[in-house]
């Protein structure tokens, strides 16, 4: 551990400069502008620019960079939400979020941690567009989670474990998320986007679609799920395999081939590395 002591003035200098960096931007004029007149006179006095206006202008470069870098990071982390909202509305939400929660982690991407939940809370109880926005935020968060997950060790259950599978719970891999969409949002997420204007909200699907999102050696993979399969996987997250099956049978009583389907779904789940282990 290095024991070097900083000069006594360094902390107060950095406190003044930091306040300039984090000074909120002004949205009132239809564009994001710095509020350079609000910078403290002490911070301005730190700058040797020769004239007061230039001192504030140079500090404003850092102030704007701070915010635009964070906004850019949040747009990258939540690309579907960005497309639905457009840049102006997205940035408005993002600034509100970031003003409450200044980043404390070194990884810039973590500045977006909690933003999806923040958007969902803002959208709660407000109509179809707001529900689509909340779903978009959940989808973006699912991608963030999968793409940031460590690679789990391959799950190869023993013959003994397989024999007792009915009484066991399958532990979902951290590199897997289940996604449901009421509108073709995943297509929207992959669509080209130059930023600025919101993309039109696509019409609702005849029935919701379910997917499993899992990481791959290249990037990620999306696999469509049958409705009963999605329900089964959802039940497996909270119940033993046997209990999940019995709960599924109650809602799928008219499906005579259910047992065969379940075997197939479990095999497919193993192949996709949906689970990282077994707990009892």
């Amino acid at each position: 551990m290095t024991r070097s002591t900083p000069p006594a003035w360094l902390e107060s200098f950095q406190a003044r400069f930091s306040r300039v960096l984090r000074a909120p931007l002004d949205r009132s004029g239809g564009a994001l502008r710095d509020r350079r007149d609000d910078y403290s006179s002490e911070a301005c006095a730190d700058v040797a620019a020769g004239e007061p206006a230039l001192e504030r202008a140079r500090l404003a470069v850092y102030n704007r960079q701070y915010w635009f870098r964070l906004l850019d990071a949040l747009q990258r982390e939540l690309p579907l939400t960005h497309r639905l909202l457009g840049s102006w509305a997205f940035n408005g939400h993002a600034l509100g979020f970031l003003e409450q929660r200044a980043p404390a982690q070194r990884d810039l991407a973590t500045a977006a941690d909690g933003f999806a939940a923040f958007l969902e809370a803002r959208a709660a109880g407000e109509g179809a567009a707001a529900r689509a926005l909340a779903q978009a935020a959940r989808i973006d968060e699912a991608f963030r989670s999968v793409l940031r997950a460590a690679e789990p060790p391959p799950f190869v259950p023993t013959a003994e474990a397989l024999a007792q599978l009915e009484s066991a719970r399958l532990v979902r891999s951290p590199a897997v998320r289940f996604i449901e969409e009421d509108r073709p949002l995943l297509e929207l997420r992959a669509a080209p986007y130059e930023g600025e204007r919101p993309l039109p909200l696509p019409p609702a699907l005849p029935a919701p679609r379910s997917w499993v999102l899992c990481s791959t050696a290249e990037s990620y993979r999306l696999v469509p799920l049958e409705p009963a399969q999605a329900r089964f996987f959802e039940l497996l997250a909270a119940h033993t395999v046997g209990h999940a099956l019995s709960l599924l049978e109650r809602t799928q009583a008219s499906e005579p081939a259910l047992a065969g389907h379940v075997q197939r779904w479990l095999a497919e789940g193993m192949r996709l590395n949906l689970w990282s282990g077994i707990s009892r």
Binding site: P7, L10, E11, F13, Q14, A15, F17, S18, L21, R22, D46, Y62, Q65, Y66, R69, L70, A73, A102, P103, A104, Q105, R106, L108, A111
Partner: peptide
């Protein structure tokens, strides 16, 4: 790049002094 527990995600200047 950081101060007082917050990350600024920028490369920031400091005064050029002998003690620094």
């Amino acid at each position: 790049t950081a101060a007082h527990g917050l990350q600024h995600h920028d490369l920031l200047p400091a005064p050029y002094t002998e003690d620094l």
